[in-house]
Amino acid sequence: MSGHLPTTDAPAYRGRFAPSPTGDLHAGSLLAAFGSWLLARRHGGEWLVRIEDLDPPREVPGAAQRQLDALTAFGFVSDLPVVRQSQRHGLYEAALQRLLDQDKAFVCHCSRSDLAAAGGVHRRCVAHGPRAGHAAPQAAVRLRVADGAAVEFDDALLGRQRQDVAREVGDFVLRRADGHWAYQLAVVVDDAEQRITDVVRGADLLDSTPRQILLQRALDLPTPRYAHLPLLLDAHGRKLSKSEAAHPLNPADPLPALRAAWAALGQTPDTLVAVETVTQLLRAARDSFNPAQIPQAAPGLAAMHNDPDPNAV
C-alpha cells in the first residue's frame, strides 16, 4: 500500500461484524452481529464480516472457522468475501510508516511499570533505552497525542460523547513491543480500506472510539458513523464474554438464541413467535425492526472507567 488508503466512492451504508477468534461465538457476540445486520438491512446497506486475528497468544485454534460456520447457521453471511486481519500486515505497516515519517508516531521503550506513577497514561517517555532481556523489536510505537486533544462525536444510540484523549488515555499504542499490531491501528486501517460507513458494535468498545477518530484524522481518513449496542452481562455485572456464563451458541438450534438477542435489542418478542425457520425469522425481524427501541448501551464515556490500554506494551 502506498499513499492514502482508498476513501472515495463510499457506499451509502456499509456495516461490519468483526469477531476475534478467541473462542466460539456466544450470546453477546450474536447480539452484536444481529444488531449490526439489522441496522445495515434497515438502511438498505451492505453487511461485511472481518476476522480480527492479530493476537496469536489469545487465539483459539479453529475458532475463526467455527465462528463463520455459526454465523452461517444463524443466517448471517457476509455480502463480500470475508477479510482476515492476519493477511493484511502490509496495509498496517504502510499506515504506521506514514505516521512515523510525519512525526505523528514515535518509538517508545516504556513498560507498564514505567508508567505506573502516571496511572498508565503516557505523556512523555520515562524509559531511556531498550528493556533488558526483552525480545525484539523491544519497543512499542505510539501515536503522538497533542496536549489538550479531546474528541467529541455523536453516537447514534447514546448521543453526544466526549473524551479528553490526552489526559485520560495519553499516547496510545499502534504496534506493541512484542511486534503485534495494536487493535486501534488495525481497525482504523481496515474500516477505511473496506469503506465502512457505519460501525455498530458493543458498548465495551465505546471508550476506544475517540482514539480511533484521532487516528483517522492523523491518517487523513474518513470517520464513519458509530453506534454502540447494549452488552449482555452476567449476574455479577460482568461482560458475558469474560464470564463463565458465556456458553457457546448452538448452531443446530438457532431460533431460541435469535429470539433472545431480538428481545435484548429491545424489540417486541411476539414478532418472532410464529416463525419456524431462520430465513422466516430474519425476514420478520428486518421488516419490523425499530432502532428507537434499542436500550441505552452504557451511561457514556464520562461515566466509564478507562482501563489501561490492553495493547500497551
Rank of each mutant, 00 (worst) to 15 (best):
L174V: 14
G90Y: 10
E59M: 08
E168D: 14
G159Y: 01
A261C: 07
L229D: 01
P308E: 03
D270F: 12
P256D: 10
P291G: 03
A297Y: 01
D191G: 08
D207N: 02
Q87Y: 08
Q102R: 15
E93M: 12
D164K: 05
K242N: 12
F172Q: 10
L96Q: 12
D55Q: 05
G15H: 04
P224D: 02
A298I: 04
H305W: 02
V151Q: 00
W47N: 04
R16I: 11
P57R: 09
F34A: 11
Q67N: 10
F172Y: 15
V145S: 12
V189P: 11
T72G: 10
S2V: 14
A10G: 08
I196A: 00
A260N: 11
L91K: 06
D220P: 08
L232D: 07
L54W: 03
G44K: 07
G120W: 07
A33I: 00
L205D: 06
A10M: 11
H180D: 15
D270S: 15
V169R: 13
L25T: 12
L143N: 09
G179H: 13
A298N: 05
P137G: 09
L30S: 06
L301S: 00
S208Y: 00
A10K: 05
V273E: 15
L174H: 13
A117S: 15
L233T: 09
D270W: 11
D147Q: 13
H43S: 08
R142C: 11
K242W: 05
G23Y: 06
H43V: 01
Y226L: 00
P21T: 07
A218Y: 11
R84K: 07
V141A: 12
L229T: 10
L31P: 00
R176Q: 15
V126H: 01
K242L: 06
L233P: 11
V187G: 00
G35L: 08
R88E: 12
L231Y: 02
K104F: 09
C125L: 04
D190F: 01
C110T: 05
G23D: 03
R66C: 06
A260G: 10
D270E: 15
G300M: 04
A218M: 06
A64G: 06
F34Q: 10
G179L: 14
G15P: 06
H228K: 05
L272M: 11
L281S: 13
S243F: 06
H134F: 09
V107N: 11
L206K: 00
R16C: 03
G45Y: 08
A302K: 02
G159R: 03
R225E: 06
